[in-house]
Amino acid sequence: MAVLHGAADTALAKAAVFNPTGLLTAKIVTIALLVGAAALWGAVDAWLRREDSGRTWLIAALFAGVGSGVLYVIGRGIFVDQAGTSELGPALTGGAAFAALLVLVPAGLGLFAGARLGGPEPAKPSPTPRRRAPSPSPRAK
């Protein structure tokens, strides 16, 4: 999720270079895709009945926030406008909090919805070959 959010932020920054005033639709579509990805992934985790999904998504949201901030500054420095480490502070505070919420809230809703769906049926055990009972007498040589 951190890579997805970092790439989305970098792509929006690159698009802002070419069209600084007409990005409203692009921002809405980007946020909708990020929210949809987190919600779908959370729903699949709940549908598959994964252990500790809520805790996993909380930790993932925290890492995605910080990771996407760092990746955004790196991507912006490489691909957009040579941004330096002075951009790291705002990316790790406000940007990280926003990215963490963009992961945590939709994933929580996905976990709620996915738990309400019928989970996949457990795999049927394969039939084991029947073993013969050992004979009470020893074998003759």
Rank of each mutant, 00 (worst) to 15 (best):
W41N: 14
W41R: 11
L109A: 11
P106E: 07
L58D: 03
L62Y: 00
G114K: 04
G84E: 09
S53T: 09
G118H: 09
M1E: 14
R55N: 07
G77W: 06
R50P: 06
L62F: 01
F112L: 11
S126I: 13
A2F: 09
A115I: 01
G22V: 03
T10K: 03
G6R: 06
L117H: 05
A39H: 01
L104F: 12
T128Q: 15
F63K: 00
S68P: 03
A26F: 00
T30Q: 02
F63G: 13
P129Q: 14
P127G: 10
I78Q: 09
A46N: 07
L58H: 00
G94A: 08
A16F: 07
A91N: 05
L88I: 03
W41H: 12
T30V: 03
G6Q: 06
D9W: 10
N19R: 10
R116V: 08
F79A: 15
F98T: 15
G69S: 07
A46K: 03
M1G: 15
A8P: 10
A8H: 06
G84W: 00
A15C: 11
K141T: 15
G75L: 02
V105S: 06
A37L: 10
G110H: 03
A91V: 02
P122Q: 13
A61P: 05
P129E: 15
A15R: 14
N19A: 13
T85D: 04
G84Y: 00
V17M: 07
A64G: 15
A100Q: 05
A61C: 01
P20D: 13
L104N: 08
R130T: 15
Q82K: 10
R116I: 04
T56Y: 01
G54T: 09
P122T: 15
T21A: 07
V66D: 04
D45Y: 01
S53M: 00
S86C: 01
G22A: 14
T25F: 12
Q82V: 03
T30L: 00
V105P: 10
P122A: 14
A46S: 10
V17I: 11
P120E: 12
A123L: 10
V103H: 05
R49M: 04
G110Q: 02
P125Y: 02
L62G: 15
A140V: 09
K14M: 13
I31P: 03
A15G: 14
P129V: 13
A15I: 08
A11M: 10
P127K: 12
P129C: 05
K27M: 08
D9Q: 13
G77P: 04
A100D: 08
L111P: 04
A61G: 06
A43R: 02
L88W: 04
L117M: 12
G84K: 02
P134N: 06
I31H: 05
T10D: 07
R50N: 08
T56V: 01
P136I: 01
A97L: 14
T93N: 12
L12N: 08
A2W: 09
G42H: 03
A26G: 06
Q82M: 03
K141S: 15
A7C: 13
A115N: 13
A38E: 09
T93I: 13
W47S: 04
K141P: 13
A38D: 07
A64W: 00
